[in-house]
Design a protein around this nucleic acid. Structure first.
Lengths: 225, 225
DNA sequence: GTCTATATAATGATAGAC
DNA sequence: GTCTATCATTATATAGAC
């Protein structure tokens, strides 16, 4: 599993200009956001003229769509590879993270910027997680849940959200979730602790919430101005 | 705790134009991002001329700074209030969420846009969480951790990340984390399940990871091209 | 404090030569 | 396929009247 050469967004005359532009866009969009990145910056990073960007992709929106599709394809392929390699686990997404740093940075941006292709990508990730976790429950490695789908969504959002906030994780813990594997382990250890032993000392919170019914909450909401 | 009237970004001639501009900016920045929001749009939403925005805040960056400070102050005040009201719990952040929807939407954007005040805000949130959780452990409601700080960071990132990805949570589960309390409960239930019982059926994962040392991981990293 | 009118810079996109 | 030169639009910010 420790292989794969990521595609760095550096100037590489050996790949087509089109691919260089696309990779530069992925890096810059991921780094400064879609709105924060100009065509000129992309062209400069790819070592071409701004006009060539338009020539190849029609428009900035067209370029983004191609980036979306490419990133989604790579993510899907990476997950496919990981699936066939061995049993999935909740750290799978983070495990494969360092293979494709600019890609993940782009995904992190997509998640909040709301790029046109991100919904389908997230839905796929969640659907896969539902399958993974069902298998895990059957295999006896995961605890069964009263709400398997919701739990899968929760865990996916936690992981994707952590990626989206990678800069804060880096600052707070010195761990680059988009970076090397060793660093990711430092992040994974407390997660493992929570996932193995839980967070609460007992089930008093669960009981307390179980005691609440919808009516009480509705009432509580209604009392707001 | 079920009170407080949020400040809607609607046209309200009874508050100063300055406050209206600031609130409109918070809503729009949160909704469409900093780069995606023009001064004209802010002025229109506040019912004033674009020039007045500049007159009050100097520049778009200046306006953002004021927004940052205002949001941070409100968040701090809200947390302060929640602290004095009762014992804190991991859902505290989400509990108080619905009080201030536009504010939280803005925070969600700040978290990924990297607004200049967001680091301090997050650091404060984490520092508070560390205190909360230490008290929780002493009180016997939370399990002790081998890495209390890292666990607190993890949980804060999970919660803030969930807020940042609220649109996906809405789509996947029909729950608006920035919205009403009843919806949030639907999200909180699986979280409560994981926090109470854990996710793994046993400690095999923890043991497997505990067996890994840094050298192995380093080696694995080095083998990447 | 608030406006209209405008300056100036940057943006996405086009035209046409090579 | 790739470039230079340029257009049209939009952006932030300013000047000065009321």
């Amino acid at each position: 599993m420790c292989s794969v050469q990521a595609t760095p967004p550096v100037l590489r005359p050996d790949v087509t200009a089109r691919a260089r532009i696309r990779d530069a866009a992925i890096t810059l969009f991921g780094d400064r956001g879609f709105d924060g990145t100009g065509m000129r910056a992309i062209a400069a990073a790819a070592g071409v003229s701004p006009a060539l960007v338009v020539h190849h992709f029609g428009s900035k929106a067209g370029l983004r769509q191609v980036c979306d599709e490419h990133v989604a394809a790579v993510v899907r392929a990476t997950k496919q590879e990981a699936m066939t390699a061995g049993p999935p686990d909740p750290l799978e997404l983070l495990r494969t993270a360092d293979e494709t740093q600019p890609l993940l940075r782009y995904v992190a941006r997509m998640l909040v910027d709301g790029s046109p292709g991100v919904e389908a990508l997230v839905d796929t990730i969640v659907a896969d997680a539902v399958d993974y976790m069902e298998e895990g429950v059957e295999a006896g490695t995961l605890r069964p849940s009263e709400m398997p789908y919701e739990r899968a969504v929760l865990l996916c959002i936690w992981q994707l959200g952590s990626i989206a906030l990678h800069s804060h994780v880096k600052r707070l813990m010195g761990v680059d979730l988009l970076g090397d594997r060793a660093a990711i382990l430092k992040w994974g250890r407390p997660a493992l602790e929570v996932f193995t032993h839980g967070l609460f000392a007992d089930d008093r919170w669960e009981k307390a919430v179980a005691g609440l019914d919808e009516d009480q909450l509705k009432d509580c909401n209604d009392r707001r101005s």
